[in-house]
């Protein structure tokens, strides 16, 4: 990374006023043009002189100031390549979506809460321990008893047929059985480094699909990290994000418990988790959003830091119908072969 001779000047000013719906009205610091920054946005670029302005609103319980920002490291061209490659892998999508003539790509600093907590869980599970038993079984085997000798050893006689004989034999066999035990215990751990979305525009599953982010490259929030790039304000209330965090916590705690279960196998895992000492900190995450013009169901997210891709594409009814027909043909062919 190249470094300038001095830190940049952060010129700070008060907004000129409020527009409709909580928008901020400000005068461009370079050309004086009046710019309106919508309520859900954190900055704007002057359409006349391209000066990037960052708006730091007064913090509210549902709209805190970001604590950290993860800067973009993936450019537009790389993100577009990843998005197109992801769409190509959606075999059931219409061809116009799999190989689009054009895609619309938009960068956004997505607000998300980075949460951590002490998770205490009580769990009960049925654990299976395998053991092997040796047993004797009767099996029917074919024994070749040899060729019958042709009478007189006549060279011109018809070649006699083999006469396999069926016999019952007793053989030893090892069988694996499972002994089941009920286990219940307590589990406690720090749950950390988990993000939940604070934006109505991006569903929790969509954000989950492009994680993880490299948190060692995370920086304390500074306006210069988002200058000139669209950045969103949280659009989900903090209480809603806490609910999402709760659900994520239950999943994470369950996964941690499942990873360390003893035995050879397990079933019926029941977990009740209590969270203590919960903290949520707002982080701006770099995300590229790709959409296909004319295909409203197609949306791809690209992690602006690592390039991880996730997203969904609409399903082609024709392709699904063809697949069903193909499967039915395969099943019919297999049945015919077995019967034959």
């Amino acid at each position: 990374m190249s470094a300038g001779p001095e830190p940049p000047t952060h010129k700070t000013a008060r907004p000129q006023g409020e527009g409709p719906g909580g928008a901020v009205v400000l005068g461009c610091d370079t050309c004086g043009a009046v710019i309106e920054v919508a309520a859900h946005e954190r900055g704007a670029v002057c359409p006349f002189c391209a000066t990037a302005t960052v708006v730091e609103r007064a913090p509210l319980p549902d709209r805190p100031r970001p604590t950290f920002t993860i800067g973009f490291a993936f450019g537009e061209a790389d993100a577009a390549r990843r998005a197109r490659a992801h769409l190509r892998r959606q075999w059931l999508a219409p061809e116009a979506v799999r190989r689009p003539a054009a895609i619309e790509l938009r960068a956004v600093y997505l607000p998300a809460y980075l949460w951590s907590a002490a998770a205490r869980s009580a769990y009960a599970v049925t654990i299976g321990e395998d053991y092997e038993i040796e047993e004797e079984v009767e099996v029917e085997v074919e024994v070749d008893v040899g060729l019958p000798v042709a009478p007189g050893g006549d060279a011109g006689a018809r070649r006699p047929e083999r006469r396999p004989e069926r016999r019952i034999e007793r053989r030893k066999r090892t069988r694996t059985e499972t002994e089941w035990h009920e286990v219940s215990a307590q589990h406690a751990c720090w749950l950390r480094d988990v993000f939940v979305t604070a934006s109505r525009g991006v569903a929790p599953a969509e954000l989950e699909a492009i994680q993880p982010f490299e948190l060692r490259r995370m920086r304390r929030h500074q306006p210069q990290l988002v200058a000139g790039w669209p950045a969103e304000e949280p659009s989900l209330a903090r209480a809603e994000c806490e609910q999402l965090a709760w659900r994520a916590a239950e999943d994470h705690a369950r996964a941690r418990i499942a990873r360390q279960l003893p035995g050879d196998r397990w079933r019926e895992l029941r977990v009740a988790t209590r969270l203590d000492e919960v903290t949520l900190d707002l982080v701006l995450l770099p995300v590229w959003l790709a959409s296909v013009p004319g295909a409203p169901g197609a949306r791809v997210l690209v992690n602006g830091q690592t390039g991880a891709v996730g997203g969904k594409a609409p399903v082609s009814r024709t392709k699904v119908a063809l697949q069903v027909v193909l499967m039915m043909l395969v099943v019919a062919a297999a049945a015919w072969l077995v019967k034959g």
Partner: peptide, 23 residues
Amino acid sequence: AHVVVVRCTVCGAAMRYDERAGA
């Protein structure tokens, strides 16, 4: 509430985050 413009200390132009520089 306040607005911030990040300016270059050398030439005074407004700066923008660059993903290749990470700054």
